[in-house]
Amino acid sequence: MNLDTIVKELDLKVLSGQDRLDAEVSGGYVGDLLSDVMANSKEGDLWFTRQIHQNIVAVASLKDHAGIVVIQGAEPAADTLEKARKEGIPILASARPGFETIGRVFNMIAATKSPEEADI
């Protein structure tokens, strides 16, 4: 499933990386502790976080994430968006709470996978 499908289904606001919405999303990771995200997220993950400072861009870039979703209507700082645009990292904003946002994306991705590979 690509990022664009998720953006449209959840009506996410695209704040950066408009030209990277064809990125394949293979799974997701949820976390606000950057070391936890560094250690446990995977390539192609969509990362859900409440953090909005510019260091989230480095983490997503270093871990080859498909993009970052900031939840609960959080607004990333201006320097975060500037850095994300420079590095081509999609930042998407969800007006909904994290639980709902993540649940909906989980179901979308799970529906595209067979039960054997449902470990997303």
Partner: peptide, 26 residues
Amino acid sequence: FDNAGHVSSQIKALLTRMKLSKKVVR
């Protein structure tokens, strides 16, 4: 933290250009 991650990004780009495996680079 203004430039935090800058060196890591540089090193990642360098190692990628050296054609090391993605796992080693990450």
